[in-house]
Simulated scan of single mutants.
Amino acid sequence: MFNSLSKPPLAALGALVGVAALALTGCSGAGAGAVPGAATTNSASDTSSIVEHAPVAADDLIVPDSTMKKIKNRGVLRVGAALDAPLLSQQDPTNPDNISGFDITMAKMLAKYILGEPKIEVIPPASETREALLANGTVDVVFNTYTINEKRATQISFAGPYFSSGLAVAVKADRTDIKSIDDLGGKTVIVGANTPAVQAVPGKQPTAKLVDFATDPQAVQALLQGRGDAYVQDYTLLASNAAKEKGMKIVGEPFTVESYGIGLKLNDQQFKTFINNWLTTIQENGQWGEVWEKTLGTVTESNTPTPPKIGSVPGS
């Protein structure tokens, strides 16, 4: 399953946006200034039907004095999420009321589970502010390519993991002979300088010839220009690139593992159990896979992955 040694910079993209200035409220049919997070009309990213048919928690699961009850009384789920992460959580520049992607759809489904409708307030975090936003109650949850690790788990709690990323392989869109890391023996492979791919690729394919570039845009251009047979980078970063550059695609599944969790306030075990039970429900019902297929799955030729096992990562 998906995961990597390197954390893509997507989680930090929200740092470029003022948190207070861009706290956006989202719900279906909301008025001016609200951000319903409704998907765009592009069929590759339209997850509105999935959200519409998402499960709603039974009344007895919203127990008195719980975080779930407080959210329900408030009438909105406050979410730490990016606004500029393609296929994960991206605001439509032509229609700011629309935010689409895997992470934001998951957040809307969680809101539907708690509230009966997908009302969310999106607050873009910086990678260094996520723990503080949870600790001070600014947000209820963080969906932000938030890698689970034991150090972070001393400051906040993690539900999940709900998704696993990792180093993956991208090639030009018209290429058919490379389907995974297994096909890179003897090939010229583009990597980012000082990224985990520098060690991981030779570990899998000792005969591959590495060509490194200082930045991700340089590496993408090198791939599109044919200066390498493949580009190895974190799956979510490759997916973001492929969403913008139609000349490239992802092949196969990630061959390393980095698990993402839903960030929660520290030691709220009741809320954590509630969310983990919700994750189990949408995984078993197939809705997790449907969201993946409409978002991250649109730029890869691999099959729908198996969701990561909840509680399977130290710190989760």
Rank of each mutant, 00 (worst) to 15 (best):
F2V: 07
L5V: 15
K7W: 07
P8S: 01
A11C: 14
L13G: 09
L13K: 03
L13I: 12
L16C: 06
V17K: 03
G18W: 04
V19I: 15
L22R: 03
G33D: 01
P36K: 06
P36E: 13
G37C: 02
T41C: 05
N42L: 11
N42G: 04
T47F: 01
V51M: 02
E52S: 13
H53F: 09
H53L: 08
A54R: 06
P55S: 08
V56A: 11
A57C: 04
A58P: 09
A58R: 08
P64C: 00
S66C: 05
K72Q: 12
N73P: 03
R74M: 10
G75T: 06
V79I: 09
G80A: 15
A82V: 15
L88I: 14
L88R: 04
Q91T: 06
Q91I: 05
Q91R: 13
Q91A: 07
T94V: 07
P96H: 09
I99T: 15
S100I: 03
G101C: 05
F102T: 00
D103F: 07
D103G: 03
L110G: 11
L115K: 07
L115T: 14
K119M: 07
E121N: 15
L134N: 03
A135I: 07
G137I: 07
V139Y: 00
D140A: 06
F143M: 13
E150I: 06
E150F: 03
R152L: 13
R152N: 11
A153C: 10
I156P: 00
G160W: 01
G160E: 01
F163S: 00
S164Y: 13
S164I: 03
A168Y: 00
V169R: 04
V169I: 01
V171I: 13
A173M: 07
K179T: 14
S180C: 04
D182N: 07
D183V: 05
G186W: 01
T188Q: 15
V191Y: 02
Q199V: 10
V201N: 00
Q205E: 11
P206D: 06
P206I: 02
F213M: 10
A214L: 12
T215N: 05
A219K: 03
V220W: 00
L223I: 10
R227M: 15
G228V: 03
G228H: 09
V232I: 04
Q233E: 12
Q233I: 08
L237R: 02
A239T: 01
S240N: 04
E245R: 08
K246Q: 15
K249V: 02
I250Q: 02
I250E: 00
F255C: 01
F255T: 00
E258Y: 13
E258K: 12
Y260A: 15
G263T: 00
K265E: 13
L266E: 06
N267H: 14
Q270D: 12
K272G: 12
T273V: 10
I275M: 11
N276F: 09
L279I: 09
T280P: 10
T280G: 14
T281I: 11
V291I: 07
T298L: 04
T300N: 02
T300R: 01
E301L: 13
S302N: 10
T306F: 12
T306Q: 10
P307S: 13
P308H: 09
K309W: 12
I310Q: 10
P314I: 12
